[in-house]
Design a protein around this nucleic acid. Structure first.
Length: 590
RNA sequence: CGGGGUGUAGCGCAGCUUGGUUAGCGCGCCACGUUCGGGACGUGGAGGCCGGAGGUUCGAAUCCUCUCACCCCGACCA
């Protein structure tokens, strides 16, 4: 029985000044965590119980899915990460350190290399596969800006597992197995989630899905369909391609003077105010313009390349989306020095006339999928102060291809069913993806197949942020009064409040009930502090968020306890001899 | 890395503009008494290098310079 009279606990009446998001604020107030370093937290007894419950559930579900637990050091030598290039690729986010001999080490941000190597050490036959192994480990990332308490720290606990298969069919099975295990895990954790398509990005690989808890405190944006079950990370959203039209049907393209039109808005105003420029069917809109942005791609091999991107003028280019398409290259804005290298680019008036590998600049030119054959555009004429009107794709210009680069807007059509998409924020609590052979290739993980041939093992990678999940659960379940833990992760099943007058019969009755509850397997937290007023006890109980609160109060002389549901606030008086059964029924009901 | 903000008791804050006794308030903590179903009350206490360094001044929490730290927005981010 947890006793508040001797728990290492101090609840705070006021919000800590450095806590913004609810989970952080309330977990500090409830005495569960304390900030110890930027991005680093100390777990106190009640919080640590919650943490271990979450960890236990994750472990149980991984084990049930047939994964085996291992444990690597967090402190690792540089060499494996050099072999895969991540020692440099990971950049400043990697915590690096040097030992007394001057050798480089790192605090692992994730363990792909070590898992790959340990399998290489021990296994060499297809008959050993498939294999899925995992660990629950503290990870380190030197985040530029830790924030939101436990949600984004520099030290955090993550469950990461890896699957090893001989072929892609095997990988598909391992992936599906993990996906199913994650669904049961998050269901048990009482955490709402959506599964969104994601980009595997710099990690390489193909299929990738994220489990997002749809909460405003999250920093990932995703879209979901208001009608069907389509959901995707913003980077991975695809745009429907409008049907093509006959390019010959468009009015002839003409170059016009457009003085003082540095922005899309001023350009549209200019077009609509000049009678001779009027459109045949309706006023000009920003979406009639074609905005061409040039960026510089820096490839991992050190080379650079210019890339031109055309999007409808009513949208910005979303550099994160671009980066996801061109990974592992990095995207940088085009600077003065870059422009100097391409004299045919007229800043502010860049148009398809100069863009494309066959045109004067020689810059590869990719356009948004909405820019289809036969569509007509107002765009830069590659001369200062001039634009070209009715430039038509397929007749007047031909880009090198399409790219998903335009920002996604609330209300855009769903690529699956056409209904409106809505943009929401979420906390990434899990990520599963098919790594493929990237790491096995780099580190030489091969096995002999049935024909005696060496084949490179194909891998999957699957993560759950354990400490982040604790915060996400707090965030998803709390209310104005405090935390409100789902049963399985709560620090106790019941919070027993002694509310009677000091010296009255309540204390003895509560102690006796507590013993009986505990004897029947119920986890009890009892507020047996002396000299604490009832108001404080009630507030603390609500703040801490144990799912069932039992009050030993004025009903005790009549043999009654009040049983209250933390979430709904419903309360019912229960005779002393029925409380244990009542509570067990409540627990069994979930 | 860019922008904004804050550092004063364990926590939350005032004081700083306009320098001047012993640096204040609320919460929490300790003691005694009262109270006891919604963050009770009284009395008496303990607790501060006013983030750090340098400077101006007879005198600095307060003015100046430098510096460090933390928080928020953005950039970045398995």
């Amino acid at each position: 029985m947890l006793r508040m009279s001797n728990l290492f606990l101090r609840t705070l009446r006021e919000d800590p000044a450095d806590a913004e998001v609810a989970s952080h604020r309330l977990m500090v107030r409830a005495g569960m965590v304390r900030r110890a370093a930027p991005g680093g937290f100390t777990w106190l007894p009640l919080g640590w119980i919650v943490f271990r419950n979450v960890e236990r559930i994750v472990r149980e579900e991984m084990d049930a899915a047939g994964c085996q637990e291992v444990h690597f050091p967090a402190l690792l030598p540089k060499e494996p990460y050099e072999a895969t290039g991540r020692w440099t690729e990971y950049g400043p986010n990697l915590f690096r350190l040097v030992d007394r001999r001057g050798n480089d080490f790192l605090l692992a941000p994730t363990h792909e290399e070590m898992f790959t190597l340990v399998v290489k050490d021990l296994f060499s036959s297809y008959r050993d596969l498939p294999l899925s192994i995992y660990q629950i480990q503290t990870k380190y990332r030197d985040e530029a800006r830790p924030r939101a308490g436990l949600l984004r720290g520099r030290e955090f606990v993550m469950k990461d597992s890896y699957s090893f298969d001989v072929d892609s069919e095997g990988l598909d099975r391992s992936y599906a197995m993990h996906r199913a295990a994650y669904i049961t895990t998050f269901d048990r954790l009482g955490l709402p989630y959506v599964i969104v398509s994601a980009m595997s990005g710099a990690m390489g690989g193909s299929d990738s899905e994220e489990f997002l808890a749809p909460l405003d405190a999250g920093e990932d944006t995703f879209v979901r369909c208001s009608s069907c079950d389509y959901a995707a990370n913003t980077e991975a959203v695809t745009t429907e391609t409008p049907s093509a039209a006959d390019p010959a049907a468009a009015p002839a393209a003409k170059v016009v003077d457009t003085p003082d039109t540095p922005t899309i808005d001023t350009l549209v105003d200019h077009l609509n105010s000049a009678a001779e420029l009027a459109r045949d069917d309706r006023p000009w809109a920003a979406s009639d313009t074609l905005k061409n942005i040039v960026v510089r791609l820096d490839h991992p091999d050190g080379t650079s390349e210019a890339l031109a991107i055309g999007v409808p003028g009513d949208r910005e280019v979303d550099l994160r989306r671009v980066e996801a398409q061109v990974a592992p290259a990095e995207v940088h804005p085009f600077g003065e020095a870059d422009f100097a290298a391409y004299p045919s680019l007229v800043k502010g008036y860049i148009g398809p006339g100069a863009l494309g590998t066959e045109r004067s600049s020689g810059i590869r030119f990719l356009v948004d999928p909405r820019i289809t054959v036969g569509s007509r555009w107002v765009t830069g004429a590659d001369q200062p102060g001039r634009h070209v009107v009715d430039l038509t794709l397929g007749r007047d210009f031909t880009p090198d291809g399409t790219i998903e680069a335009a920002e996604v807007l609330d209300g855009d059509p769903c690529p699956r069913c056409g209904a409106q998409l809505e943009i929401a924020r979420g906390i990434e609590i899990g990520h599963i993806f098919k790594l493929g052979t990237k790491y096995a290739e780099a580190l030489g993980l091969k096995v002999l197949d049935a024909d005696g041939q060496q084949v490179t093992v194909t891998m999957g990678s699957y993560g759950i942020g354990v400490s982040r999940a604790v915060a996400a659960i707090a965030e998803a379940t709390c209310d104005d009064d405090g935390l409100c833990w789902p049963r399985e992760v709560a620090p106790a099943d019941v919070h027993l409040v002694i509310a009677g007058k000091e010296g009255g019969p309540q204390r003895a009755a509560a102690e006796e009930l507590g013993s009986r509850l505990e004897a029947s397997g119920v986890r009890v937290l009892i507020d047996d502090r002396e000299g604490v007023s009832p108001g404080v006890r009630f507030k603390d109980a609500e703040l801490i968020g144990v799912p069932t609160i039992i009050v030993a109060g004025r009903g005790v002389p009549d043999g009654l306890f009040e049983v209250k549901d933390r979430r709904s606030g419903e309360r019912v008086d229960v005779p002393a001899d029925q409380v244990v059964d009542h509570v067990r029924t409540v627990i069994a009901a979930g």
